[in-house]
């Protein structure tokens, strides 16, 4: 919709609003064992510029190998689960940490280059690097006077 409204300049405000709006529509959490379903889990922060976006999520205890990441055009889906396992005699005295399966979907305002997507996690924070597809990047067209 707002693509190429300005050549070479990507309106950041629109990206934020765009993501926030779509997030409300798309995002769902498979509720199993969640006590507070209104909270999106995991919580995401998104950084962006003309070259792409970086998504970070707080996912303590979840390894990057346990995340299923799907990129299709401009839609990114992050799927996974967190299970808190107990040994035989262990009993919960208090239970606050969220567990269960989760799915989050974000539609970005640009096409993603799937081959260049990077996913890593450190200290319980998942980080996804989603570079913008080369073909999707705005090109400056030289204007010559006749």
């Amino acid at each position: 919709m707002f693509r190429n409204r300005n050549f070479g300049y990507w309106p950041l405000e629109s990206i934020g609003e765009h993501i926030a709006r779509l997030n409300n529509e798309f995002n769902r959490v498979i509720t199993r064992g969640w006590r507070e379903t209104e909270r999106a889990f995991p919580a995401f922060n998104i950084w962006s510029n003309a070259e792409g976006a970086v998504l970070a999520a707080e996912l303590p205890g979840v390894k990057v190998e346990d995340i299923e990441l799907t990129v299709s055009g401009n839609v990114v889906t992050i799927k996974g689960s967190r299970k808190n396992l107990l040994a035989g005699d262990d009993k919960y005295v208090r239970r606050e940490r969220q567990e269960g399966e989760f799915v989050r979907t974000f539609e970005l305002p640009f096409q993603v280059e799937p081959a260049k997507v990077k996913a890593e996690s450190a200290k319980g924070i998942l980080r996804l690097e989603l570079p913008r597809a080369e073909a999707d990047k705005p090109k400056r067209i030289e204007v010559r006077s006749a």
């Binding site: 303590p60 808190n84 005699d89 262990d90 005295v93 208090r94 319980g124 924070i125």
Partner: peptide, 17 residues
């Protein structure tokens, strides 16, 4: 989460980052 098995109490806290 606080877990107890009679011999010990285990405290598990989510502290991302």
């Amino acid at each position: 989460d606080i877990v107890d098995n009679g011999k010990q109490t285990v405290l598990i806290a989510d502290m991302p980052g």
